[in-house]
Design a protein around this nucleic acid. Structure first.
Lengths: 340, 340
DNA sequence: TGCTATCCTGAAACCGGTTCCAGCAAGCTC
DNA sequence: GAGCTTGCTGGAACCGGTTTCAGGATAGCA
């Protein structure tokens, strides 16, 4: 049995309250008493029981992080940013991994309670409308990272401007001379409410429009988020009678599927077809993939900083910080081939 | 302020103990009373305070996971396995991310205390000898995943047989006819005490020996674990006067560096040089990389199962479960070129 | 009708801290 | 030397649950 504060008090011949004061560096302890208590603490190898502390303080000293942790490399990178801030703090990081919509709903309902956590950080998961009132009135501060939804204005969040990113990626291709530009993405309506695909799509449409290029519905393909699925979709795209000369993929993982499809079909990248991805995950550099770099780590870091600020009441109105994505030009984009 | 068990008791016109019994499904409550209490719980939207529960039960209902979380893709996969088991349990997962040796030492010292966690799972970090006695006598059950060290016999762990894996990878190359086989790895002595590189090296040596191929020290290169560093090392290897015809890399990440180096030097893979990696991370399939598949997810899952078994006293003697790696032959290995 | 066994209930102690508040001793003022 | 601060200390209440234990109500039985 570990020593308790009572054991220490007895050993040092003082009252409980005094030991507690020493532990909390209260100035209301005389140097000689402090020394005696510290000696007793050392002798008994005493460490305060965090659970008792939490109960007494009425705080959990815990931050809950809800994230679809593993389904995409980008989430892990955001989580790293979150952790980097938390490591310096007194808070523990409790991880709630969401792999199904059911899990998400359960966690959204149960985690943001004062008894569970002092703050909740939600990564890349947009709440459903019916969850909103509860989250907005939550007794616990909440920050969303990478959940861009029009109805979220009452919640604190850090987002990247996916529409602008989609626009830039597309504009890059247009600037190179492409006019047959396909877009390959996730479905817009997913059980997880991911909004990135749709926002990037809006940017894609906007860039086309600005350049006077008509949108061709058959050049937009979507499916579950995986390399294999993207490969299949890209094969369809690249065997169309009127073949796109460039593909903008909504993620690097999907861009890899496009590269595979091109390889399957004997098409050279970038000579025959250009490819742009999104995220700039680690592997993108190796592949020479032109892509949109998101500040993934940074967004997690910033989200956590916001949350800590809220918890310390240093923040009143809902804040929405926008981080910008940045085009990274590598070797998978070039002017389109001459087409008769 | 959230409702407490006392509020519920008052509302239902019963004593505290009865409410507690209802919460814990004790059979010692009459149906009518139970119903009244449940009604009160619903009306007050009451949830029991986990902190108070923990203090009262003398359990933390928490599992601590210490991991060098983000430095390699393989860790994340193991963590997924851990989480998959924990999600079904009543335990929270508290994450301690180790990015420096100092952090590791702090966590090894502070986390395995009864007041902090009911169980500790350590991924891919071998304790230093001086930590061993404390860990072995820890009041809290501990399981190590992927920490293979001769002095760890008194600790529960799940390991993969890295020596055998290294042997198999090398034997595969020998079987193809290679006799000039290089090994590219991390340094054997690292601040984190990773042992995989050295164990795989031992397997490499053993396979060479079994085939009567002398070991050539200049064909073993090592450096920090990164693609860029591996690329540099591989460039050295592949420009030696007597050039190896195959490179066995201690991880897929490093194998990618080797592929880059080959590309830099205009060497074809596998025609001019064969490459074998280790881990079978997701990207390996995309690259067509021949590699050793580790049961990463499975090892995490198994480790967590072991830990839960220990916590329930279903386990007495230290257990060491060995998982086997498995050769996955893809497109980066072939017989060596004819050499004069 | 009286006695016991069974079932259910609630008061109180407990987990291990923090903090309020009363009180004591020493030092200061007049 | 009486009266007041000031500085330090410890008893006790409190956080919100669980669990022990004593006892009351009811049913069963003689």
């Amino acid at each position: 049995m570990p020593a308790t504060i009572r054991d220490v008090a007895q050993r040092a011949g003082v009252g409980l309250a005094t030991v507690s004061r020493v532990l909390n560096n209260s100035p209301l302890v005389s140097p000689s008493t402090r020394e005696r208590v510290q000696a007793a603490i050392a002798e008994l190898n005493f460490t305060p029981n965090p659970t008792a502390r939490r109960l007494s303080l009425g705080k959990t000293l815990t931050i809950a992080v809800i994230t679809p942790f593993f389904t995409r490399p980008a989430f892990v990178e955001r989580l790293r940013g979150v952790e980097s801030v938390l490591a310096e703090s007194q808070y523990d990081l409790v991880l709630y991994n969401v792999e199904t919509p059911e899990k998400r709903d359960i966690y959204f309902r149960e985690v943001p309670r004062r008894q569970r956590a002092d703050g909740v950080l939600i990564i890349s998961l947009a709440p459903r409308d019916e969850d909103l009132p509860r989250l907005a009135d939550s007794p616990v501060p909440i920050v969303l990272v990478d959940a861009n939804h029009p109805s979220l204005t009452m919640l604190n969040r850090v987002i990247t401007d996916d529409e602008e990113g989609g626009r830039q990626a597309t504009a890059h291709l247009i600037g190179l001379g492409h006019r047959r530009i396909a877009y390959l993405s996730d479905a817009f309506e997913t059980p997880f409410n991911f909004t990135a695909s749709f926002d990037r799509y809006k940017g894609y449409r906007r860039a086309l429009e600005a350049a006077g290029i008509p949108f061709r519905p058959e050049w937009h393909r979507w499916g579950p988020h995986s390399r294999a699925e993207a490969r299949r979709l890209a094969q369809e795209l690249l065997t169309l009678p009127e073949r796109p000369t460039a593909v903008f993929a909504a993620s690097d993982t999907q861009a890899m599927g496009v590269l595979e499809a091109a390889r399957d079909l004997g098409l050279r990248v970038p000579e025959d077809v250009s490819v742009v991805g999104y995220d700039d995950i680690e592997i993108a550099e190796y592949l020479g993939l032109t892509t949109m770099r998101q500040s993934l780590f940074e967004s997690g870091r910033r989200g956590m900083e916001l949350l800590l600020a809220m918890m310390e009441r240093r923040l009143s109105d809902p804040v929405c910080e926008v981080m910008n994505a940045q085009l990274v030009i590598r070797a998978t984009t070039a002017p389109p081939p001459d087409i008769p």
